[in-house]
Design a protein around this nucleic acid. Structure first.
Lengths: 191, 191
DNA sequence: CGTCTATTTGAATGTACTCAAAAGCGGTGG
DNA sequence: CCACCGCTTTTGAGTACATTCAAATAGACG
């Protein structure tokens, strides 16, 4: 079974590619193995790649002026991750992307994606539709952040992503939800 | 001067359209005038349109179980707005979109946009690139929400969008930043 | 000018945070 | 395989910050 199976199925949910288009697409995918705690993106370096996770888990986070970590993305199988701002604008990253587990990812270079999207209409459609969908979910997170209490945010997350909640360290989850690890521990204990 | 000037300039920042493509695009834009306090989107109704603001200001917000309003988007000239989740999935909206001022907007129907993006590669490119950029900014807001104090969020907003901060009521801004109106008033007074 | 809404101010409350320390857990090397 | 070490999670106490509720003031609009 090909390592491209997952991503091609993902694409197939939105558009249908010809065999030739599939070949062109997979040609720009660079399979990479990363070990737990390894950084894929680091502040100061341009995030050249959009990364798709075949197997494993990754988080994107930044360290504020006080040295505290804030997790922006927690990604598992069949998700994309990168420092999006750095990737889209091709400017130096501000965030880290770190493997939470040994992982296998598919990396696609910005220039390659852009070139291919310029040539292949259906791939352009795929990325448009996929990103629009991501965007619509992103608003849900904003709604959670501005309107819900820490406790509500936590249980909402557990409800929505039970696999993730049980798979990542609590301090990572806390930093994703914007809660201190101590508070998250207390929220969990009073249930 | 055509009312399409703004949106066409926006498109031109990303892609170049032929005259024919421009004609096809503007053909699906429906200019609509809305009065202050008028709703463009309401819970229970599918948000059929993606809306571009030619002139005016609009906010998207929801009302929680306790009757409190939470503002998700504040949009002015040259911005798009809609209940994105409802629009993308074509399911009933959960949010309101309300004019903060008398406004002139361009409405494009979901089906028309999809059909045109299927036919016209460069328009598909435009929406892809535009949405990817929006996405990259959306992460910035998330970073703000999970990592910064109320006070920092407020000053960051004023710094980033001074025109908006001085143009919308403070309780709207407070509900956008996830702060109570009273707290925002106090933040402003101690400066 | 009067009414309605938005903003400010005050006092009390509550939620989440910080700092500190203990307990739990996992991984590593002897 | 067990013992140790480091990191994560829990627990406790005190504090800071934002919220709520209530009332007063200020502003906008007809």
């Amino acid at each position: 079974m090909s390592i491209y199976k997952g991503i091609l199925e993902n694409v197939a949910k939105y558009v249908q590619l010809t065999d030739d288009e599939i070949a062109q697409f997979t040609a720009i995918l660079k399979p990479t193995r990363i070990k737990k705690r390894q950084f894929v993106v680091q502040p100061g370096f341009v995030s050249e790649y959009r990364n798709y996770i075949v197997e494993g888990a990754v988080r994107v986070f930044y360290v504020d002026a006080l040295g505290k970590e804030h997790t922006i993305i927690i990604a598992i199988e069949d998700w994309f991750f990168t420092d999006f701002f750095s990737y889209i604008h091709q400017t130096p990253a501000e965030y880290y992307a770190e493997a939470l587990e040994d992982s296998l990812i598919l990396q696609m270079k910005y220039d390659d994606v852009e070139e291919l999207c310029g040539k292949v209409h259906s791939l352009c459609q795929y990325f448009r539709l996929y990103t629009e969908r991501s965007m619509s979910f992103s608003y849900k997170r904003t709604v959670s952040n501005i309107g819900k209490s820490s406790e509500e945010r936590y249980w909402e997350f557990v409800d929505k992503y039970p696999q993730i909640a049980s798979r990542v360290p609590q301090y990572v989850l806390a930093s994703y939800l914007g809660i201190s690890p101590e508070s998250l521990s207390r929220i969990r204990s009073r249930s």
